[in-house]
Computed example of a mutant assay.
Amino acid sequence: MSSEQLTHFNEQGRAHMVDVTDKAETKRLAIVKSQIHMRAETLRRIQEGSIGKGDVLAVAQVAGIMAAKKTADLIPMCHPLPLTGIDISFEVENEQTLSFRVKVKTTGVTGVEMEALTAAQVVGLTIYDMCKAIDKDMVLGPTYLEQKQGGKSGDYRRESE
């Protein structure tokens, strides 16, 4: 099967969950990067902890972890996975851009890219939700897979941002 052939369709052309029964367990890792752009004042207030709803980054971090664990409940063809590690880090890129990386790990028969992507989106949405009262012009993204390890398709590292 070529890497471009889609596997989420059965012989009738209907969607199905891919059968991973016979796949070997390997260590899996996915790292996703995303960012949110906002007014400088909004980012300053996040850093100071003066957003009225609480510690924005702490809440976003917990929301991202919860989202990674719930990915199979949200994305119909994702397998429920026993995640063994989730880490979310934040970095101020400039006075208007906050970036974040989500790292998800497991040992299993299928990858964790969707869990990392879902977590990253929920991190951004949580930041937006907590700050929308003072900045409705925030923009999420781009969000993309930076790296993956494990599985039949091998390792992947994005060459450019």
Score class of each variant (00 low, 15 high):
residue 45 R to Y: 04
residue 124 G to P: 13
residue 52 G to R: 12
residue 100 F to H: 14
residue 104 V to L: 00
residue 160 S to E: 13
residue 62 V to Q: 12
residue 72 A to E: 05
residue 115 E to L: 14
residue 16 H to F: 14
residue 62 V to S: 07
residue 45 R to I: 01
residue 110 T to A: 10
residue 1 M to V: 08
residue 9 F to H: 07
residue 79 H to R: 09
residue 68 A to F: 02
residue 44 R to D: 07
residue 92 V to M: 08
residue 154 G to M: 03
residue 6 L to W: 01
residue 68 A to L: 06
residue 125 L to T: 04
residue 64 G to S: 09
residue 158 R to M: 08
residue 100 F to P: 09
residue 100 F to S: 06
residue 34 S to W: 00
residue 40 A to W: 04
residue 70 K to G: 00
residue 112 V to R: 05
residue 147 Q to L: 02
residue 27 K to N: 11
residue 113 E to S: 04
residue 153 S to T: 10
residue 80 P to E: 11
residue 118 T to A: 12
residue 86 I to M: 13
residue 24 A to K: 14
residue 157 R to E: 12
residue 158 R to G: 02
residue 20 V to I: 15
residue 5 Q to C: 08
residue 103 K to N: 00
residue 10 N to C: 02
residue 127 I to L: 10
residue 97 T to H: 10
residue 92 V to T: 13
residue 134 I to E: 15
residue 79 H to I: 09
residue 18 V to E: 02
residue 20 V to H: 04
residue 144 Y to K: 08
residue 52 G to C: 03
residue 46 I to C: 05
residue 29 L to G: 01
residue 108 G to Q: 10
residue 76 P to N: 01
residue 41 E to K: 12
residue 149 Q to P: 02
residue 139 V to D: 07
residue 7 T to I: 15
residue 132 K to Q: 10
residue 58 A to S: 13
residue 102 V to N: 00
residue 22 D to Y: 06
residue 49 G to F: 06
residue 74 L to K: 07
residue 103 K to A: 10
residue 133 A to P: 01
residue 140 L to N: 02
residue 94 N to L: 06
residue 80 P to T: 02
residue 17 M to F: 08
residue 127 I to V: 15
residue 78 C to A: 12
residue 44 R to E: 14
residue 7 T to M: 11
residue 140 L to F: 11
residue 55 D to K: 13
residue 144 Y to A: 04
residue 94 N to D: 15
residue 45 R to A: 10
residue 34 S to Q: 03
residue 129 D to I: 06
residue 92 V to G: 00
residue 155 D to P: 08
residue 59 V to R: 10
residue 41 E to Q: 14
residue 108 G to I: 04
residue 108 G to M: 12
residue 11 E to W: 01
residue 111 G to F: 05
residue 127 I to K: 07
residue 76 P to G: 04
residue 131 C to N: 03
residue 78 C to E: 09
residue 92 V to D: 02
residue 7 T to W: 08
residue 127 I to A: 06
residue 90 F to D: 07
residue 16 H to W: 14
residue 5 Q to L: 15
residue 34 S to A: 15
residue 78 C to S: 13
residue 38 M to W: 02
residue 60 A to N: 05
residue 135 D to C: 12
residue 21 T to L: 07
residue 154 G to F: 04
residue 68 A to G: 03
residue 67 A to Q: 00
residue 122 V to F: 10
residue 80 P to V: 05
residue 70 K to V: 00
residue 50 S to T: 14
residue 100 F to V: 04
